[in-house]
Design a protein around this nucleic acid. Sequence first.
DNA 1: GTCATAAGTGATACTTGATATCACTAACTG
DNA 2: CAGTTAGTGATATCAAGTATCACTTATGAC
Lengths: 129, 129
Amino acid sequence: MLEDLGYRMTPSRRLLARLLGSKAGSFSAEAISEELPTVGRATVYRTLKLLVDAGVLCKTALPDGAPRYSFDDARHHHHVICADCGKVEEFRKPVVERLLREMAKEVRGAVVGHRVELYITCAKCLSER
Amino acid sequence: MLEDLGYRMTPSRRLLARLLGSKAGSFSAEAISEELPTVGRATVYRTLKLLVDAGVLCKTALPDGAPRYSFDDARHHHHVICADCGKVEEFRKPVVERLLREMAKEVRGAVVGHRVELYITCAKCLSER
DNA sequence: GTCATAAGTGATACTTGATATCACTAACTG
DNA sequence: CAGTTAGTGATATCAAGTATCACTTATGAC
């Protein structure tokens, strides 16, 4: 685990690291905290922030403002959101990145990030109508 | 003002409408509330929500989670947002439509909407550093 | 105009996600 | 196997936003 790079290894951090390792895509601090009842809220938030500062995770927000964490190497993916049930899926295609680079060329100013979101009614919600 | 469509016209709403009329781009509820000290916080939030529900404004969040309101004058609007000053510009290019068609093809479920946002540091903010 | 009423209001209490405080614990160094 | 200091969890606190509620007022009937 990369926390050996300056930080102490503690049981709480071990638990958190193991949980994060099993996570794919993005997740909320709240969800992490609920899955680790033995670890204090403050510690969860502190450690997540620490990982963000260390460049392991990146923190963003969905359009509704809900904060989400994801691994930094997954920075270039986008979201498919069911407008009905709110389920969020990752979406990742090279063509998207290429086209976004083309867009960036036509914009004045320094591009520091981007976001693409598709709103859908997912198969499950469609079938439940 | 369009609030005649079902809602009562009150001094507070008049003040708010006038202020919004002078606003370009996006703004926070907090900023609005500070510029209208005679109008209660609750009323500001209530009225903004009301305008969102009525389709006059749309509410989104910057990547850091800060909620922002802006006029919803275009249905399929794509935004270029300065992450520094929050200024929002419209962006519409054929390349965007191509990108979205690409994505829609690879998604299961019925696509009901989309959003593309580029985050930049605008020329003005760059020069002020 | 005036009146009744239901929408709208502001002060305030509350909720929720996140952070600061602080006494206590335990991971690393020597 | 200490000593120090980073790390911890319980709790208090904070801030944005929402709910409550008694009071006010825009509106429409008369």
